[in-house]
Amino acid sequence: MSSREQILKKIKGSLRKTQTVHTSDEQRNQAVLARINQHPRGIIPARTSLSRQDLLYHFCEKVKASEASCKIVESYEKAGIEIQKFLRQHNLPQLVRIGTDQRLNKLGWENEPPQLLIGPSDGQDLVCVSHAQYGVSETGTLVMTSGPENPTTLNFLPETHIILLNKKNLQESYEDSWAALRQRYGKEKLPRTVNMITGPSRSADIEQTLILGAHGPLRLHVIVIDGK
């Protein structure tokens, strides 16, 4: 018997011992399929039962609480200018790694546009810009999905990460993101990587002292596009 069969058999045997009411394997299998099919929601914290605008403010507060910075702009044109401003403020080169996300074509630049490097990161980049799929107001979390539009390496290798979020994609809870992901990728399916990011990387492994910039980015700037 293979280990697979052995383990499954042992589990079945152990479970049978404890059953107070007899449930057949068929009934148990149906219960599993039903739960996966219905994926019932549990408790969702009431903190995000807010108006659309307050949901955005709550999101920004939470982003800031995670040691990242947050800026709301009116359009993609303005978002580009905000990126340039951020780079200048932090003494960073106007050289930016990005993916092929169409929405990034709408970025507007002031004077000389920054030089854009397209594709995944090889670990040499200082700055990158990517577009979040969703934002979760509950904890100021950005939901990033893999693909050439926003390669996963961008989320971890460059020292400074700038993430754009369209306010239309701002959600109350993680559960709202799951619903949206299901709609986009199909039932019981996900893209290769879903990164939920809340703040820049950090470690507290030396004497429990919190230090930003462990293996991932040292700096995270979130720009929300709030098109009126």
């Binding site: 995670s66 399916k189 290769r192 820049p200």
Partner: peptide, 11 residues
């Protein structure tokens, strides 16, 4: 409230 990174990997 949540760790900095929560990552789902699928295949």
């Amino acid at each position: 409230e949540i760790t900095v990174y929560s990552t789902l990997s699928t295949g």
